[in-house]
Computed example of a mutant assay.
Amino acid sequence: MALLIILLFICLCIGMSLRMLFIPHKIKGKRVSFENFIFLAFVYLTVLIGFGLIYIILELYGYVVLIEGGQNMVGSFLNRLETGLYFSAITLFSVGYGDISPIGIGRLIAVLEALIGYTIPAAFVARAVFDMENKH
């Protein structure tokens, strides 16, 4: 039960962060500003950490979602956390080195994260263009 509550909270945080891309008055100005850059960085950071925690929580509860070098993740919690956050970043930014692979439900989660990684910049640019057109 605690796992479900934690996962729902993480998904809520990710959803709220992504939702902010679609609020018209949040992105200001006609060009990229430092404020907009920080805003975009925090959206990415929220999604990256959120998915990293999802991978780790599932691993801690006995679900094998990531394999490294053909073997299940092993080691201390900090080692697993580092691996989960690393895999999350590599997946979100669509680099995909191949040193860590998702399996089982991890594949679906990784696909969802990669899709979000592709749509964040598009939503950010679309929102900025939409706001510029509304101001004219």
Results as ranks from 00 to 15, higher is better:
residue 10 I to L: 12
residue 73 M to I: 15
residue 59 E to T: 11
residue 64 V to H: 03
residue 44 Y to H: 04
residue 134 N to V: 01
residue 117 G to Q: 02
residue 16 M to P: 02
residue 15 G to Q: 07
residue 115 L to G: 14
residue 38 I to L: 13
residue 72 N to S: 15
residue 12 L to H: 09
residue 3 L to R: 14
residue 76 S to W: 04
residue 7 L to E: 11
residue 38 I to M: 14
residue 82 E to Y: 08
residue 82 E to V: 14
residue 28 K to Q: 12
residue 43 V to S: 07
residue 87 F to V: 05
residue 61 Y to V: 10
residue 3 L to G: 13
residue 96 G to F: 04
residue 20 M to P: 00
residue 37 F to L: 15
residue 56 I to A: 11
residue 106 G to T: 03
residue 79 N to C: 07
residue 12 L to C: 11
residue 92 L to M: 06
residue 30 K to P: 05
residue 101 S to R: 12
residue 63 Y to C: 03
residue 125 V to L: 10
residue 18 L to T: 05
residue 70 G to R: 10
residue 71 Q to D: 09
residue 22 F to S: 12
residue 99 D to T: 12
residue 11 C to D: 11
residue 97 Y to S: 10
residue 113 E to L: 15
residue 71 Q to G: 03
residue 40 L to Q: 11
residue 1 M to P: 14
residue 1 M to Y: 06
residue 76 S to V: 04
residue 75 G to F: 13
residue 69 G to N: 07
residue 18 L to F: 05
residue 40 L to I: 08
residue 6 I to C: 09
residue 27 I to S: 00
residue 57 I to A: 15
residue 106 G to R: 04
residue 114 A to I: 01
residue 23 I to F: 01
residue 75 G to A: 08
residue 46 T to V: 06
residue 80 R to Y: 00
residue 111 V to M: 15
residue 17 S to E: 04
residue 127 R to M: 05
residue 37 F to P: 01
residue 37 F to D: 09
residue 97 Y to T: 12
residue 45 L to W: 01
residue 70 G to M: 01
residue 101 S to A: 10
residue 81 L to D: 00
residue 66 L to V: 10
residue 48 L to M: 11
residue 56 I to N: 03
residue 101 S to M: 14
residue 93 F to S: 11
residue 129 V to M: 13
residue 2 A to M: 06
residue 47 V to T: 12
residue 6 I to M: 13
residue 112 L to F: 10
residue 13 C to Y: 09
residue 123 A to G: 01
residue 50 G to D: 02
residue 100 I to H: 03
residue 108 L to Y: 13
residue 78 L to A: 10
residue 32 V to H: 05
residue 25 H to D: 12
residue 132 M to R: 15
residue 121 P to C: 07
residue 95 V to H: 00
residue 94 S to L: 15
residue 132 M to L: 14
residue 53 L to S: 13
residue 70 G to W: 07
residue 64 V to R: 08
residue 57 I to V: 14
residue 131 D to G: 14
residue 96 G to I: 02
residue 42 F to M: 11
residue 7 L to T: 02
residue 121 P to Y: 00
residue 34 F to Q: 13
residue 7 L to P: 05
residue 81 L to K: 02
residue 128 A to G: 08
residue 39 F to L: 06
residue 6 I to E: 13
residue 56 I to Q: 06
residue 16 M to S: 14
residue 49 I to P: 09
residue 18 L to I: 08
residue 123 A to T: 01
residue 113 E to Y: 08
residue 46 T to C: 14
residue 10 I to P: 06
residue 63 Y to I: 10
residue 48 L to W: 15
residue 32 V to N: 01
residue 136 H to S: 08
residue 29 G to W: 02
residue 118 Y to N: 09
residue 4 L to C: 07
residue 124 F to Q: 02
residue 12 L to M: 06
residue 62 G to W: 08
residue 73 M to N: 08
residue 116 I to Y: 00
residue 134 N to D: 00
residue 134 N to T: 00
residue 17 S to I: 00
residue 57 I to S: 05
residue 122 A to S: 04
residue 111 V to I: 14
residue 102 P to M: 12
residue 123 A to C: 11
residue 57 I to Y: 05
residue 52 G to H: 00
residue 102 P to G: 09
residue 81 L to V: 09
residue 79 N to L: 14
residue 127 R to N: 04
residue 99 D to Y: 08
residue 76 S to P: 08
residue 40 L to F: 07
residue 52 G to K: 07
residue 11 C to M: 15
residue 55 Y to V: 07
residue 79 N to D: 10
residue 50 G to F: 06
